[in-house]
Nucleic acid binder design. Structure first.
Lengths: 148, 148
DNA sequence: CAGTTATCGTGAGTAATTCATAATAAGAAT
DNA sequence: ATTCTTATTATGAATTACTCACGATAACTG
């Protein structure tokens, strides 16, 4: 069972505020949302909240490791609640949609080198780039269109 | 043998300009440089060149696939000349140093899934986060310092 | 060598994010 | 419950990385 948001916030040594609860709720509904999307979602409950406050809250929750921040190339930072399971992401080059990808292999050798050029590797992050189902369909239609 | 820069530019269907040659030269000397670093390097040969022109040149060369653009989280975009060999990067969380990492395994299963959640994956990008040798040394010294 | 057009230079403009500081509210102590 | 302390949020400006529009310049073509 998922712990109550309020409890996990408290467990992290942070004060429980309506803003933080609202942000966590928003991220449940929007699994890979950028700051703006979170802002819009939270505004439905708290109309007056500013974008800057969302930034502050997201930074605090990220710092406390209650949420995770991902920064795909060419797009603003995204946040997700699913943490601690070292999953990766597939991003659509067409529309920017993000999909969680579990690392199917328990310990892929290429992903956990103990050292690389003297580096002490702590984590490995994989980003898959490709086309989501919707964009594949659009693409196929466009290609087929050449013949008509 | 590496082809002459001028030839590869021409081969890509682009005009050969002193600015483009200077940028390619700069990237030979600075394997993972951001736009600013390239600008400073090029200015030694062409004092008047503006940062915006560097942006334009880097964009053109990236578009032509003569250089590759990487965008590590939390840092400006970096450019490198080494392309076409699908290598990855280790980035130091301490100082931001970047190190090329060859994919030791010929075909790591986790890295080339034919599909993931319906996505048609085109490329996989791996970023290793850790500490470079210099920062490991600093870190060790700092930790040791706690006892003194 | 002249013409066409890709490329570069200039300056302004934008998006994402951060910072400083004042106002507010959460949790502890009474 | 009430007050106190201090973490947290609000406000507004500032910064960074980057893009865009358009006139000037210089590559390649014939």
């Amino acid at each position: 069972m998922t712990p109550e948001p309020a409890d996990s916030i408290r467990a992290a040594g942070l004060r429980v505020t309506t803003q933080r609860l609202a942000v966590l709720e928003a991220l449940d509904a929007l699994p890979h949302a950028d700051t703006d999307a979170v802002h819009r979602a939270v505004q439905k409950q708290q109309p007056g909240i500013t974008l800057q406050s969302i930034y502050v809250v997201l930074a605090a929750l990220t710092e406390a490791e209650l949420i995770r921040r991902i920064e795909p190339a060419g797009s603003p930072a995204l946040y997700e609640r699913r943490i601690g399971d070292n999953h990766h992401h597939a991003i659509c080059t067409g529309c920017g949609a993000v999909q969680d990808v579990d690392c199917a292999v328990g310990h892929a050798p290429c992903l956990t080198p103990s050292e690389a050029g003297g580096f002490a590797i702590a984590t490995a992050e994989v980003t898959y780039w490709g086309l989501c189902p919707a964009c594949q369909a659009t693409d196929a239609r466009t290609s087929a269109g050449r013949n008509t």
